[in-house]
Nucleic acid binder design. Structure first.
Lengths: 159, 159
DNA sequence: TAGGTAAGTCTCTAGTTGCAACTAAAAACT
DNA sequence: AGTTTTTAGTTGCAACTAGAGACTTACCTA
C-alpha cells in the first residue's frame, strides 16, 4: 500500500500550484495585493524588491491569472494590478502560512491583524476539517487512492 | 489608514515563514515527508531532485526544526528524516495550496486523496473562519492594527 | 516645451540550480 | 580478510536566476 502511494505522488496538484506560486517573491507580492496595493511603484517601495524581478513576477502572476493588469483611464501611465477570483482564492493558503510563521517563527501576532469585519475580532486558526466541520489532526487522516474511498462524496453531501 | 497599514506590512510573519519554506523544493519535500517517506534515496528517486539540492534542502529543513535527522540504530548508514511538531503544523498550509492547485490549476482531484480516517471521506475545503467557526470570505475581512481591535481576544474567549 | 512621474528594461555582478561523477562509511557477501 | 553494495552525501563545472542601479519610454502638468 505504501508502495502504491509512492507511485502516484507525482500526480498531486502541488507541483501545479508551485508552478504559479513557488517563486521566491510570489507570496510577498500576493500579500501586498491583499493589503490593497495596486501599482508597480507601491509594490517596489513596500517590498524593496529589485525592479526587474518585480516586473518579471507581476507578469508571471498576470500570466497565471492571479492578477489582472489594466491601464488606468485617467492616467494611462498608471497600471493597476488587481487580484482575480483565482488570486483571492489563495487567501486561506497565505493566512495558513502566516499563522504558522507567527506560531513557530516569530512567536508573536503579526501586524496588521486579520479580523472579522463584523465584530473586529481576530480570525480563528486555519485548520484541516472533515466534510462536516470537525477539526482533524495528522493522526485522524489517511492518504487514500481514489478507489479506496468510502462513498462518492457528492452523493453523501446531497443527503 | 491605508497609509498606516503600508508602513507596518514588513512586520508580518510571512517573510519569516518563507525564510524556512520559500525555497523551490521545500514544499515538495515536505509533502513527501507527510506521505511517509523518511530516507534520502526515497526523496531523491520520488522527487527526481538533484542530490546536492536535496542534501542542502534537507539540512535547511533540519536547521529550521521542520524535520529531525537521526541515524537508525540497526543500520547506521541509514538516516531517518521525520516531521517535527513544527513541521506537522504546516499541514493546513500544504493542504490549502494543494486544494487551490486542484481547483484552479489541474481542475481535478489529486491522487492520493486526503481522507478522514474515521469514515474514509475526503476532507473539507480549507477556509478562513471567525473565532466561532463561521466561514469568512475576503469581503468579510479587515486588516486592523493592534490598537483597533474590538476587545482582547482572550477575555472574550473566556466568556 | 521643460520637468517630473510611472512602469518598466538593460547591464553587469553575484549567487543558485542541476547534472554527473566521485567519496566515505557501514553493511553484506564470498 | 577482502571485495562489493548500499546509503548518504560532496565536488566540479556549465547554465540559469537574482539583485542593484542606471537608463528608457510614455504620459501627464505647468
Amino acid at each position: 500500500m505504501g508502495g502504491k502511494i509512492r507511485e502516484v505522488l507525482s500526480e498531486c496538484s502541488l507541483p501545479a500550484a508551485l508552478e504559479a506560486m513557488g517563486e521566491r517573491w510570489s507570496f510577498m507580492i500576493l500579500r501586498a495585493a491583499f493589503n490593497g496595493l495596486h501599482h508597480f511603484e507601491e509594490f517596489q517601495s513596500e517590498l524593496g524588491i529589485a525592479r526587474n524581478i518585480l516586473a518579471n513576477r507581476l507578469a508571471r502572476l498576470v500570466e497565471h491569472e492571479i492578477l489582472t493588469r489594466e491601464a488606468m483611464p485617467e492616467d494611462r501611465r498608471k497600471i493597476e494590478y488587481r487580484l482575480t477570483e483565482k488570486g483571492a482564492a489563495l487567501l486561506p493558503t497565505m493566512v495558513a502560512l502566516r499563522q504558522w510563521g507567527e506560531r513557530w517563527e516569530t512567536g508573536c501576532p503579526a501586524t496588521p491583524v486579520l479580523v472579522d469585519a463584523r465584530d473586529m475580532r481576530p480570525i480563528g486558526p486555519i485548520e484541516v476539517r472533515s466534510w462536516d466541520g470537525r477539526a482533524l489532526t495528522l493522526h485522524d487522516l489517511h492518504w487514500a487512492l481514489a478507489e479506496d474511498l468510502a462513498v462518492e462524496p457528492e452523493m453523501r453531501a446531497a443527503e
